[in-house]
Design a protein around this nucleic acid. Structure first.
Lengths: 122, 122
DNA sequence: TACCATAGTAACTAAAAAGTACCTATGGGA
DNA sequence: TCCCATAGGTACTTTTTAGTTACTATGGTA
C-alpha cells in the first residue's frame, strides 16, 4: 500500500522541470559558449522579451544551473555563466544542438538557409 | 541586406520544435524501452489525458520520429515505436533520463522516495 | 538640466497549451 | 439485446505561459 505519492513516474520529468520550456535550453546552449551579458543574450535571442529572459535566468539560477555575476557599476553590468553543476548538462546541450542541425539539413537540405550565422552555427 | 527571415537563431530551436513541450520527451523515453500500446503508455503516464497522448503521438509521427502500427482488430490494437530516425535521439533521451536521476539523488538523497518503480528506473 | 545606458520590476492583457466531458466505431460475449 | 474493451475525435473551458507597457535606479555626459 503506497501512501506517499511519488513525484516522478520517470526520471526525465525531473530533467524537464529544470531545463524544460520554451527558452531554457536555448539560453543554456548560448551559455555553453562562455559567459554572456544580459544584452548579449537578448541579441542572441531577438524574440525573447526582457521579462522572459530575466524570469528564466532567475529559475535557472535558483536551480543551481547558472551563476549570476553582478558588477557594481553604473550602468549595471551582469553576466551569466553555466555553474559547475550546469556544466554537467554540457554534453546534452551540445547533442541537442547537433541533432537540430542535422534535422535542419534533413528537412531543408541547406542549413545556412534556415539558421542565422553566429559563433554557434559555424 | 538580408531579405529572407531565417527560421532559427540556433539549431537547438529545431530540436525543440520536434521534442519540446510537456510530454514528447517522456513519451519518447518510454519508447526507448521498446514498442508500446496506447494503453501501456497511458499506464506509464497516469497524468496524461487521452487527448494529449494522441495529439503528441500524431505530431511525433508526422515528424518521422515514431511509427504507428495498427493491427486490424476489434477491439483496436495500436502500437507505437521509435522510427529509425527516432533512434537517432536515443542517446540524448538516455542522457536526459540519467541526468534526471542524478538530479533527483542530488535533491532528495534517495531516488526511490521520489521515483516510481518501473522498468525504466531500475 | 536633460538624457543616456543597463538591468530589472510590476500590472495587466493576450495567446497557447492543456484539461474536461461527451461522443464515435465494432466484434464478441453474457 | 446490451455491454465490454480499445483507440480515437470534438467542442468547450480552464490554466499556464508569454507578451505589452510603463516604471525604477543611477553615474556619466552633452
Amino acid at each position: 500500500m503506497t501512501l506517499v505519492k511519488k513525484k516522478y513516474n520517470i526520471s526525465v520529468e525531473a530533467t524537464l522541470e529544470v531545463i524544460g520550456g520554451k527558452w531554457k535550453c536555448v539560453i543554456l546552449c548560448h551559455l555553453t559558449h562562455g559567459k554572456k551579458r544580459t544584452t548579449e543574450l537578448k541579441q542572441l535571442m531577438p524574440a525573447i522579451t526582457q521579462k522572459m529572459l530575466t524570469q528564466q535566468l532567475r529559475e535557472l539560477e535558483s536551480d543551481g544551473i547558472i551563476n549570476r555575476i553582478s558588477y557594481n557599476q553604473v550602468p549595471p553590468k551582469v553576466e551569466y555563466e553555466l555553474s559547475e553543476y550546469g556544466e554537467s548538462l554540457k554534453d546534452i546541450l551540445d547533442s541537442l544542438c547537433n541533432w537540430g542541425e542535422q534535422h535542419i539539413i534533413k528537412q531543408y537540405g541547406d542549413k545556412h538557409a534556415m539558421l542565422e550565422d553566429s559563433i554557434l552555427n559555424k
